[in-house]
Design a protein around this nucleic acid. Structure first.
Lengths: 192, 192
DNA sequence: AGGGCGCGGTAGACACCGTCTACCGCATCT
DNA sequence: AGATGCGGTAGACGGTGTCTACCGCGCCCT
C-alpha cells in the first residue's frame, strides 16, 4: 500500500503506451493519468528514464509469462525441442504485435536504463534455455550462433511487420508464413 | 547556391547524429551548427519531421551507394548470386555499424515522414533484385518469403549487435560469424 | 499526551524544445 | 526609382524533464 503510487504509475504508463504509443509516454502525462502532480513520480523514479525502464520491465515480465504459458499449453512431455522453439517464437510475435507500443519501448535502448533494468542478467537464463533447445535440433552447428541469429530474426520480423514493411513485399497478410520460413531456415525444415 | 542552407542543414544533421546520436538531433541544435537562427530551417523543412526525413534519406542514399560499390568490387561476371547476396549483407552491416546513429534514425518510423521519404517506392526495386538473387539460390522456396525473412534477420543482427546484446551471448567479437550463420540458414550452406 | 520529524506529495521555477507569427534587409525586376 | 518577395531573424507560446522549496499529516519518542 505504501508504494501504491509506484504501481499506479507503471499501470498508467502501460495503458498510455498501449493506447497512444511511445511518444506519448511523457512523465507529466503519466502523472496526470495517475492523478498526481508532475513532481510526484520523482519520489519513486528519480528520472524519467527509470520510470520508462520500470514500464519496460513490466513488458518483459508479461512476455516471459506469455512464453511460459505457451510452453505449458504444449502439453507435458510430448513436445520436442523444435515444437517448443516454434511455440516460443509464435508467442513472442503474438506479444510484440498485440502490444506494439510496449514492445517498441522494450527495445528503445536510448530510453531505458539497461543497468537498472537488469535485462542482461535476466535474459541470460532464457538465452541458455534456447541454446539448449537449439542444440538438440541442430547438433551440427554452433548453437549459440544459431540462437543469436534466430533471435535477431524474430526481432527483425516483429519490427518490420509492425511497420508494415513486409506484408506488401512478401505478399503475406499474417506473419506465420514468415515465422515458418525463419524457423525452417535456422532449424531446418520441420520434422517430416 | 540558393538552397545551400538546405544541404548545410542536412550535413549538419548527419554530423550531429553521427557524433551525438539520434536524441541530439534537435531542430535548434542543427540550426545552430548550420550557423542560422532556429527559425531558418522552416523555410526548407516546414517541420522537424521533414528535416529528419531528409537526413534519413541521405542515409539511404549512402547505403545504396555502399551496396553498389560492394557489388562492383566483386568483379564483373565471376560472382554468383550467393556471393552477391553475401556482399550486400556484409555491406549493410558494415554501414549500419559504422554509422550507428544514422542507421538508427533510418528505421525510427516515429521520427520520419514515410510518405515524403518515398521509402516504400524506392525500396521496391532493390527488394525485387534481392528476390531475384534469392530465387536463383533457392529455387525450391518462396523467394519473397525467404527474402523478407533474410532482410529481417540482417536488420535484427544490426540492431542487436549495435546494442551489444549479441556479442556476450554468442561469444563473438565481430559480426561476421553471425552474418555467416544467417546467410547459411536462409540460403543453405555455402557452395559445396 | 504533546511535540518534533520525516515521508509523500504539491507548486513553481528553469532551461530547452518545436511551432507560429511578425518583422526586416536586401537583391531583383519593371 | 520604387514595389515585391525571398531568406532569414527575433520573440512568443505551450509543453517537457529536472530541481528546489514548501507543507500536511501520521508516527515515534520522551
Amino acid at each position: 500500500m505504501s508504494d501504491s503510487l509506484r504501481t499506479r504509475l507503471i499501470d498508467a504508463g502501460v495503458d498510455l503506451v498501449t493506447a497512444e504509443g511511445v511518444h506519448a509516454l511523457t512523465l507529466r502525462e503519466i502523472a496526470r493519468r495517475a492523478g498526481v502532480s508532475h513532481g510526484a513520480p520523482r519520489r519513486y523514479f528519480p528520472t524519467h528514464l527509470e520510470l520508462l525502464s520500470a514500464i519496460a520491465r513490466r513488458g518483459f515480465t508479461e512476455l516471459a509469462a506469455s512464453g511460459s504459458r505457451a510452453i505449458e499449453e504444449l502439453g507435458p512431455g510430448t513436445a520436442g525441442p523444435r515444437e517448443r522453439i516454434a511455440a516460443l517464437g509464435h508467442a513472442y510475435l503474438d506479444f510484440a504485435l498485440a502490444n506494439r507500443g510496449l514492445h517498441e519501448l522494450m527495445f528503445r535502448h536510448d530510453l531505458l536504463d539497461s543497468n537498472t533494468l537488469g535485462l542482461r542478467e535476466a535474459s541470460l537464463p532464457v538465452f541458455a534455455l534456447l541454446v539448449d533447445l537449439v542444440g538438440q535440433v541442430r547438433p551440427d552447428a554452433d548453437a549459440r550462433l544459431v540462437t543469436g541469429a534466430l533471435l535477431a530474426n524474430l526481432y527483425g520480423i516483429a519490427q518490420l511487420w509492425a511497420w508494415g514493411s513486409l506484408q506488401l513485399t512478401t505478399g503475406a497478410d499474417d506473419f506465420t508464413p514468415l515465422l515458418r520460413t525463419a524457423l525452417d531456415a535456422h532449424l531446418g525444415p520441420a520434422r517430416r
